[in-house]
């Protein structure tokens, strides 16, 4: 799987710079709600929440795509599992966020375990396409799920409760819960990618042959990463459903999966901070351009094409080019 190391090799010198960047992002996000209230633009909180939800999803994808060189084109399926876990459980009278998250994690992990075991038999383009196929299966399953609105999706009666408290009913409450989970996801993945496990995963990305020649079988590690990544994305799905108070198969369409890859590549793969910034910037761009013109996709598409053509390595490649992400190790 050395076919993509070219853009994947992340100079580790900028590690400290990366942590600082992440902390700066968290700090900036933390002051969004008071700022939004002060400016009389509470809508900003909703957009920022969406940005963070997708940042969690992008972080989860970066574990397998950036660190494991497994280009999944079906990752949006787990956003769907997370959202539908909320819809199904709350309909059954279980509105507790923690229980819903447990269900989302279990469902996502199980689906990932089965489909990952099959997908990991293939390589390269085939891997991309088989993950796409599994994503489509999940999508069509929920499209035909007429009890939950089928194609149209279904509105939730209310947001989830936390230990019986209506903590998420206000936008600010949901915002800080999401921020907390974003920080947790980042911290967890940051440690994970530097652990023994992460070392085997990134080593396999660099050269599977080398890893075998020192006594590793890559598959169990890749599959474990695939499952962990799915579980985290499932949590993002739970948040997405709560943010929109609505779930629909559209969350898991291949467009969404493609968009998640776009977020990663835009921000720069394999560095976690790149995934996070990529997601934040993508959602902000979409929301921003959409206010500007109904044909915002034209501008957004052009930006993607130009970034791909002019700046390999995405935004962090661009920053590096202008020496803004200096290594201070």
């Amino acid at each position: 799987m050395t076919y993509m190391t070219q853009t994947l090799t992340e100079p580790r010198a900028g590690l400290a710079a990366r942590l600082k960047l992440a902390l700066a992002i968290f700090a900036l996000l933390a002051v969004v709600p008071p700022l939004a209230h002060a400016m009389g633009e509470p809508f900003m909180i909703i957009i920022a929440t969406r940005m963070m939800v997708f940042a969690i999803a992008a972080l989860s994808l970066d574990l397998i795509l950036g660190h494991g060189a497994m280009v999944s084109f079906g990752h949006a399926a787990y956003l769907g599992f997370g959202s539908y876990a909320v819809a199904i459980l709350s309909r059954a009278g279980i509105s507790d966020l923690v229980l819903q998250m447990v269900a989302a994690v279990l469902a996502s992990a199980l689906f990932a375990l089965v489909t990952g075991a099959i997908s990991l038999r293939t390589r390269g383009v085939y891997f991309i396409m088989i993950t796409l196929a599994f994503g489509q299966m999940a999508y069509f399953f929920f499209v035909s799920f007429s009890a939950l609105g089928g194609d149209d999706g279904v509105a939730l009666a209310a947001r989830s409760t936390v230990l019986g408290l209506p903590l998420l009913q206000g936008e600010t409450g949901l915002f800080y819960v999401t921020l907390g989970l974003l920080i947790a996801a980042f911290a967890g993945l940051y440690l994970l990618t530097r652990s023994r496990f992460g070392r085997v995963l990134t080593g396999t990305r660099e050269s599977a042959l080398r890893m075998q020649a020192i006594g590793f079988r890559p598959l169990p590690y890749q599959l474990t990463a695939y499952v962990i990544s799915a579980a985290i994305c499932g949590v993002a799905g739970v948040l997405l459903a709560n943010q929109a108070v609505y779930v629909s198969p559209a969350y898991m369409s291949w467009h969404r999966s493609g968009e998640m890859i776009v977020m990663l590549v835009l921000g720069g793969v394999g560095s976690l901070t790149g995934a996070m910034t990529g997601a934040l910037v993508t959602v902000a761009l979409e929301e921003g351009l959409a206010r500007f013109s109904e044909h915002w996709r034209l501008g957004f598409g052009l930006i993607l094409v130009l970034v791909a053509l002019l700046s390999p390595g995405g935004l962090s490649g661009l920053l590096r080019k202008f020496n803004l992400l200096r290594d201070d190790k």
């Binding site: 853009t7 280009v71 590549v265 598409g301 930006i303």
Partner: peptide
Amino acid sequence: RSHLDQVLATFGLILV
């Protein structure tokens, strides 16, 4: 270039 850059560009082209 890598598959990822290709995905980025051609996804952009779809939108355009």
